[in-house]
Design a protein around this nucleic acid. Structure first.
Lengths: 164, 164
DNA sequence: AGGTATTACTTGAGCCGTCAAGTAATTTGC
DNA sequence: GCAAATTACTTGACGGCTCAAGTAATACCT
């Protein structure tokens, strides 16, 4: 009736770490969304999309590349780009090299939007994440995050759709 | 035309840490949800609700306490408890001490569900979070998460609705 | 060359969460 | 002791996201 192997429960210390991490997983994205929503009227995901484009040559990326960069599904990106297009920050055009691809291109207004938004956002990341940490802890955070990331996905390609 | 103060940009090291953390923020909740969905057909939030009840005396908590414990809004909890009630794992009843409160009570079936589900979930948390870390890193993770949590919310009460 | 398979994206249906307005029970102020 | 305010929760409207099915362009195979 019982599962045969006794599970390896968490130690007290691990439990505390897990609860604290749980809070961060829950509230950090929410806090970043709140800042961007308040100061720029966009979500964090929309910001990532605009930022991704702004860092690419010509402010241009294929939808699939942009989806990978912004850690979102193609379906989600498609709808987000709809919204950004309606707001005049992005345009879509077919890739002349291969008609299956769609290029997302940052408009001039879009570039202005990112450039106005970035400083406040970086400031918030710094305030919430790096200011409270020592430099050594920031390095530890990098290493710890990498290891957890590795455990979640030994390769590097996660976005939905596993093995066909 | 430019913002007066030059923002304090992130150093290369911070940028790497931020990207790595971003991946964890994005994919760890998703990975945990996937395991629970696959093995138990419930979301991580639903699990937290059931687990919260199972750890309370009599398997009973007021809705508002349960919402605080599970890091969700009351509105969200209300709908989730609807679902759990339909599945026969939770019941609602008015608090006899104060009719404004609603008590959520874990049924026998609900308790069995948590007990069947917990070991696999704990195993997954261990696999994704603690197995890849040294013990010292787990301690660091606790401290780092606490500091970030503190920066997000100096007190301890976040769930929506700020100062009235 | 032509049919099939694959790739890249889009879109309809449905679920889930939020916000704001509504309801019911209790406390407060006079 | 009763009206007004507060508290605890519920619910309708709405938007975003995912899954799966659909569409269009290109690659592959013989």
């Amino acid at each position: 009736m019982e599962k045969p192997a006794e599970p390896r429960w968490l130690t007290e210390e691990e439990m505390q770490a897990w609860l604290a991490l749980g809070g961060v997983l829950m509230w950090l994205p929410s806090a970043l969304d709140a800042q961007l929503q308040r100061d720029a009227g966009i979500t964090h995901f929309e910001y990532q999309v605009l930022a991704g484009l702004s860092m690419s040559p010509g402010g241009t990326l294929r939808m699939s590349e942009l989806a990978a960069f912004s850690n979102g599904s193609l379906s989600r990106l498609s709808r987000v780009v709809d919204r950004l297009e309606k707001r005049g920050w992005v345009e879509r055009r077919p890739d002349p090299d291969d008609g299956r691809y769609t290029l997302a291109v940052l408009t001039e207004a879009g570039r202005e939007k990112v450039e106005q938004t970035a400083p406040g956002h970086v400031e918030e990341v710094r305030r919430l994440v790096f200011d409270p940490l020592t430099q050594a802890q920031a390095r530890q955070l990098r290493e710890i995050s990498r290891r957890i990331g590795q455990a979640i996905d030994p390769d590097g390609g996660w976005p939905p759709t596993a093995a066909p």
